[in-house]
């Protein structure tokens, strides 16, 4: 189904551009993306906004070779679950490295990149990717 050539609700997702999540002041857990209610403490919890440092390590990874629509020009591309140093995890592409250079536990940092183009008009979707700490 063809997407419209205009920005969607995602333009308001702060977490996508600045790694903004939340922390529960009661139990100390970090969440990405941010949550309004702490799943452990529920209404007793006290959530506050937290901007992650962007540093973390690779928890697991793969190389995607069969892409979904819109990612055809990128294949093969690296995808990882990154564990941020505060403890929360994110899914992200890994860039600026080759598949054979990646290992579980490798140190990485966030960078700001183009994710794909929405619609044939070329509207660019941005977000974070991670790269090795050199």
């Amino acid at each position: 189904m063809e997407e419209k050539a205009v920005a969607f609700h995602w333009r308001a997702f702060r977490e996508r551009y600045g790694l903004v999540g939340s922390k529960c002041e009661l139990c100390g857990r970090y969440f990405f993306p941010g949550r309004v209610i702490c799943p452990a403490c529920r209404r007793k919890g006290k959530m506050s906004e937290h901007r992650f440092s962007g540093k973390g390590s690779v928890y697991s990874f793969t190389v995607v070779r069969t892409p979904p629509t819109g990612f055809e020009i990128f294949i093969p591309y690296l995808m990882a679950i990154v564990e941020l140093e505060e403890g929360a995890r994110v899914v992200s592409q890994l860039v600026d490295c080759k598949p054979e250079e990646v290992q579980i536990g490798m140190s990485v940092e966030a960078c700001f990149r183009k994710i794909r183009e929405q619609n044939k008009s070329g509207l660019v979707l941005y977000g974070f990717k991670f790269r090795p700490v050199k």
């Binding site: 993306p33 697991s60 793969t62 892409p67 979904p68 995808m79 994110v90 899914v91």
Partner: peptide, 20 residues
């Protein structure tokens, strides 16, 4: 919003489970 947006596929999900 948080997985597929970045280009993750289902084989990719289970590949990361396998790798781990």
């Amino acid at each position: 919003d948080n997985e597929a947006y970045f280009g993750l596929t289902f084989p990719g999900v289970y590949a990361m489970m396998a790798k781990r």
